[in-house]
Amino acid sequence: MTKYLVLLAGSEGEWENADPADRERWHRAHVTFGREVGAAILGGEALDGTDTATTLRRRGGSVELTDGPYAETAEYLGGFYLLEAADLDQVVKWCALLPEIYSIEIRPCIQIEGMTD
């Protein structure tokens, strides 16, 4: 089994500014996803907007904080799931249940020796 981080990217504010019927539909999609994937979901959260983000960089021994996300992009990370699956096809099949508003990046996690979970 491999752990996969599923990153949900979309337009900022799309969820908040959508009409209630769409929001309800998308919400139901997440619920269906949760039911289908079940215990294979190891974690997942919806993230607050990038206007609430703080980026930390360490330069020459000092910690520098900047307001905003680490990269300005057209699509912003809006949430994530951490899943456990046998293979990529399984993850793709599950992700097809999620709302169509996202670009979904699927990243396998690497097992690092000496790190236990």
């Binding site: 491999t2 046998a86 293979d87 096809d89 993850v91 396998p108």
Partner: peptide, 8 residues
């Protein structure tokens, strides 16, 4: 291999 493309 890394992404877990299955032989299926």
């Amino acid at each position: 291999v890394a992404a877990g493309v299955p032989l299926a």
